[in-house]
């Protein structure tokens, strides 16, 4: 099954549930009408929150950059001694 079909099925199922709620009036219809809006707003909030938290807690590794510099130095020394063109020093 294509993934978009899965998502659409989910949307249809949720909409059907919503229509059922409207018709049986378990909760006041005026509230039921607003539910999709709540849903979309909370979806948006979820997205923004995830991105926000993600950026704030972005895993960084400054020590890796230093280690890499050491590795580069070591490699250049080894290769230079064996006649490999490693470019000029930076």
């Amino acid at each position: 099954m294509k993934h978009v079909v899965k998502i659409l099925t989910l949307v249809v199922a949720v909409s059907a549930f919503w229509v059922a709620l409207l018709q049986t009036s378990v909760i006041p219809p005026s509230h039921t009408w607003l539910l999709p809006i709540y849903f979309i707003v909370s979806l948006g909030c979820y997205g923004l929150l995830m991105v926000g938290v993600g950026v704030m807690c972005f895993p960084i590794c400054p020590e890796e950059a230093l280690l890499l510099q050491q590795d580069i130095k070591e490699a250049k020394e080894y290769l230079k001694g064996r006649g490999i063109d490693v470019g000029s020093d930076f």
């Binding site: 998502i7 997205g47 991105v51 993600g54």
Partner: peptide, 29 residues
């Protein structure tokens, strides 16, 4: 890069933001 022990170095805020946005979008969809 996005679990314990992983990480990125040398990205500015914009690059982090797009990377995160892209990831959240793809994970959700």
């Amino acid at each position: 890069r996005y679990v314990n022990g992983g990480g990125v170095h040398g990205w500015n805020l914009m690059r982090k933001l797009t990377s995160r946005g892209a990831n959240v979008l793809a994970q959700t969809l």
